[in-house]
Design a protein around this nucleic acid. Structure first.
Length: 570
DNA sequence: GCCGTTTTCGGCCCGACTGTTTTCAGTCG
């Protein structure tokens, strides 16, 4: 059992306790313990002093954790599962249904699942409970409808262009003094549910009117002076929430609506230590009856005597628990070249020269051409002979195009048995060798892990691409022991990829942070572009690296060409 | 259930909104 799995059990337990009507503070204690376990740098089994060494884990939660670790089961959770119907926790997912309501309909009406709840609503039985009326029945019915039709969270890479367009229009409005994205969009989470914005204005009604009359708006959900919510359609439909505040309140509102929720809770707890309250309107000194406002977000953290935290890191993953200021995280400006891309030689859309020119236009110093290898027939993989001829073309492009260096590489398949698609004498001729999995995704963990380790142990392999193979919403990661992969990466010097494709973002923020902190792994951020436009997703990769706390020096794409070549040779 | 540079007991983040109330409980972000 790893930390993530233990945290998941603790969260399930908290859900069941909540439905059971347990003390909400007790429920929260379990949620906090789950977070502490998930965010712990060290694995639970190797923690000095046991789980209780973690802040938020005490005697009670530690004994539960120990049981999960030692036996794989969790007695309090089993007991609650015996006691309560299994359909009950799902009811918490319905908008408008909280623990109190679930508890009431179960105990007083015998509602055990979603179907029974709908039946009770049809028969108008909820209004018989004290505190319930026709309006509340109506609200829950609407909640069930929304729950059934809930769209998946959308890929950040898909919604980003729309968000940028909306932000541009907001900033162009004459009554708008400042505008910024907020929420998970600003934190650059891999998926988002809606698009949040904060706007500073002295004329909120004018801005609100302008928003609801945009041509792409298909439905107005909320049209007030402080908050406007609309459904926005541009190729797909997504909810857009815009908060309108006075210019003095803008910075505090931006912090508040950027979140995350958990990060905000920590800020407020901190403020309490000084006798202050944090809200979207500023920091309020209760004793002196005084509100502090701020010129920028750095001042907010300074006021609370906390290190400044970039939006991408505001997830309560330990970012507020450091003594000193955070080091600078990697920025787009640090990025010098893309090391994973395809051309017409395999399944790409453009030629080597076209890719080189596009990269030069982006200001890159180098790129690597890494087409697929012979076994990947669906992508017209290259034979050793093709590779030799491709190298000649790369040499010609290097002569003809100034200002950029094109490296000759390969994205080579790791075959199901763990052997590589080319022998060493072919690989040694190349500047850069990426190895990756494109077949037999269903292998068991031991086979898959050994298969990747075997590739890493080959001295000619520099990089493992998209190491978990997950496709967001489409394919789970393959079964692989990531800790062994990280350990091997450290030992062999193999670089692990953060693939910036919006569907992949693989490694993700969680693994990046863990691999760097616990194992000191080096990374490469690449777009895996199959066309010149494909290189445009690099900001997603940089943002994900920032979410994983990476600094420029942890990423080989920030190296000078000389340093990069030396690293590859070593 | 957890925690302590005011605390080992008494708190536990904050404000808006809604629907049910007649002063407040529940839910949400």
């Amino acid at each position: 059992m790893n930390n993530k799995q233990v945290a998941s059990v603790l969260n399930q337990l908290a859900d069941m306790m909540e439905v059971n009507g347990d003390n909400p503070f007790k429920v929260n204690a379990y949620r906090r313990a789950a977070r502490a376990v998930e965010n712990s740098r060290a694995s639970l089994t190797e923690l000095d002093g046991g789980p209780e060494a973690l802040s938020g884990v005490g005697k009670g939660t530690a004994s539960v954790i120990k049981e999960i670790l030692e036996t794989g089961s969790c007695t309090p959770l089993e007991e609650l599962r015996q006691k309560l119907p299994e359909g009950l926790p799902e009811l918490l997912q319905i908008p408008g249904m909280g623990p109190k309501t679930v508890h009431a309909v179960y105990h007083q009406l015998g509602v055990t699942d979603l179907e029974a709840l709908e039946q009770a609503l049809k028969e108008k039985r909820l209004r018989s409970l004290s505190g319930f009326g026709p309006k509340k029945e109506e609200k829950i019915l609407e909640g069930i409808r929304r729950y059934r039709e809930r769209p998946d969270r959308m890929l950040l890479g898909h919604v980003l262009p729309v968000a940028e367009e909306i932000l541009k229009r907001l900033r162009e409005h004459p009554a708008v003094e400042q505008a910024e994205t907020a929420g998970s969009l600003r934190r650059m989470k891999e998926t988002v549910k809606d698009l949040d914005f904060v706007v500073a204005t002295r004329h909120p009604e004018q801005v609100a009117d302008a928003i609801v009359s945009m041509p792409e708006v298909t439905r107005v959900i909320n049209h007030g002076d402080t908050k406007v919510s609309v459904m926005f359609h541009q190729g797909f439909e997504i909810q857009v929430d815009i908060r309108l505040v006075s210019p003095e309140q803008f910075v505090a509102a931006l912090v508040h609506f950027t979140g995350s929720k958990e990060h905000n809770v920590r800020l407020r707890q901190r403020a309490k230590e000084f006798g202050w309250k944090v809200s979207e309107y500023g920091i309020y000194d209760v004793k002196r009856d005084e509100v502090f406002t701020f010129a920028d977000e750095k001042e907010v953290y300074q006021k609370l005597q906390l290190p400044y935290v970039i939006p991408e890191m505001r997830e309560d993953r330990g970012e507020l628990d450091v003594e000193e200021e955070h080091p600078e995280r990697i920025r787009l400006e640090d990025y010098r070249g893309d090391l994973h891309m395809h051309t017409r030689w395999s399944d790409g859309a453009h030629s080597i020269r076209e890719m080189a020119l596009a990269a030069e236009e982006r200001g890159y110093e180098y790129i690597a051409i890494t087409d697929h290898s012979q076994s990947l027939k669906v992508a017209s993989g290259l034979t050793a002979d093709d590779l030799r001829r491709q190298r000649e073309e790369i040499a010609r492009v290097n002569e003809e195009v100034d200002g950029i260096t094109v490296l000759a590489g390969i994205e080579m398949d790791i075959l199901p048995g763990g052997e590589l698609d080319f022998p060493d004498e072919v690989l040694v001729e190349l500047d850069l060798v990426i190895a990756s999995i494109h077949s037999a995704f269903q292998q068991d963990q031991e086979t898959m892990t050994k298969r990747i380790l075997q590739a890493m142990e080959n001295p000619h392999v520099h990089i493992i691409a998209h190491p978990t193979g997950r496709l967001i919403h489409r394919r789970d990661p393959y079964a692989v022991d990531m800790h062994r992969i990280f350990q091997a990466a450290k030992e062999t010097g193999t670089v692990l990829e953060l693939n910036a494709n919006p569907h992949r973002l693989d490694l993700n923020d969680y693994w990046l942070k863990l691999a760097r902190e616990e194992y000191g792994v080096d990374f490469t951020i690449n777009t895996d572009a199959h066309s010149t436009e494909g290189m445009g997703v690099i900001p997603l990769g940089i943002a994900t690296a920032r979410r994983g706390w990476l600094e420029a020096d942890h990423v080989i794409n920030t190296y000078s060409l000389d340093r990069l070549l030396a690293r590859l040779k070593s």
